[in-house]
Amino acid sequence: MKPTKIHIISTGKQEADVFSKIAASIHPYVDAIHIREKSMTAKQIYELVGLLQKHHVPLSKLVINDRIDVAYATKVGGVQLGYRSMPVEVVKQTFPGLRIGCSVHSLKQAKQAEVNGADYLIYGHIFPTNSKPNLTPRGIEQLKQVNQHVQIPVFAIGGIKPSNVHQIIEAGTSGIAVMSGVLEAANPVQAVNAYVEKMSI
């Protein structure tokens, strides 16, 4: 079985210093930490990257959502693009050294993102989640379809808990993306290790 990876995505609700301290404590156990802060300016995201560096979080593990300029300038591990972002193919052509993730919500979008040059996908939401209370989850069967029809890694997101990680793995997924399940836990290190433990079974 291929190794399964875990990405942590910021919630947009935590102060920069709080998030940085949590990131410092959990980064040894995860593969990537996404800075997904829609209300932050480019300057604020740049400063957050600097703060994370001061807390010894490796730049190679950081992924910045949408802000290609900041990702390129700070030399972080990559950028995550969504439907409001610049087209994947344009970013790939302009910044060939930048690792590009793409957030998708359907098989059609997944296949197109792969054709356009995305290095990996984040697909969801898979299970019911408080962050999307009025939207129907995609579910495991649709996740399987995406995994079967693209060759690049797929990370599942949305309502993922240690208790349902095995379903994600059995669907052929490369990894999981978690937000509040780790970052808002009373003990983030303990929480992330609960995921890691289930992913290694």
Rank of each mutant, 00 (worst) to 15 (best):
R67F: 09
R67E: 07
I68W: 06
I68S: 00
I68K: 01
D69R: 02
D69C: 02
V70D: 00
V70I: 14
V70N: 05
A71T: 10
A71Q: 08
Y72C: 10
A73D: 09
A73I: 04
A73F: 00
T74R: 01
T74H: 04
T74L: 00
K75F: 09
V76W: 13
V76Q: 09
V76N: 06
V76F: 14
G77N: 12
G77T: 09
G78K: 03
V79I: 12
V79N: 02
V79Y: 00
Q80E: 12
Q80S: 09
Q80V: 04
Q80N: 11
Q80A: 02
G82V: 02
G82L: 05
G82C: 00
Y83Q: 12
Y83V: 11
Y83G: 00
R84N: 14
S85H: 08
M86E: 10
M86I: 12
M86T: 10
M86K: 01
P87A: 07
P87K: 02
V88S: 06
V88E: 03
V88F: 02
E89S: 08
E89V: 04
E89T: 06
V90P: 02
V90T: 07
V91W: 02
V91H: 02
V91I: 12
K92H: 12
Q93M: 07
T94R: 04
P96L: 15
P96G: 13
P96R: 13
G97I: 02
L98F: 03
R99C: 12
R99K: 15
R99N: 12
I100G: 05
I100D: 11
I100M: 04
G101H: 03
G101Q: 02
C102E: 15
C102F: 11
S103M: 06
S103K: 04
S103R: 04
S103W: 03
S103H: 05
V104Y: 02
V104L: 08
V104H: 04
H105G: 07
H105E: 12
S106F: 10
S106R: 01
L107E: 06
L107P: 04
L107A: 03
L107K: 01
L107F: 03
L107M: 06
K108S: 11
K108F: 07
Q109E: 15
A110D: 13
A110P: 14
A110W: 14
K111S: 13
Q112L: 07
Q112S: 08
Q112E: 15
Q112M: 06
Q112H: 08
Q112D: 13
Q112N: 11
A113I: 10
A113K: 05
A113M: 07
A113W: 07
E114C: 09
E114Q: 14
E114L: 09
V115D: 08
V115R: 10
V115K: 13
N116W: 10
N116L: 12
N116A: 15
G117F: 10
A118F: 10
A118C: 07
A118L: 09
D119N: 15
D119G: 08
Y120D: 02
Y120Q: 01
L121P: 04
L121T: 14
L121D: 05
L121H: 05
L121Q: 04
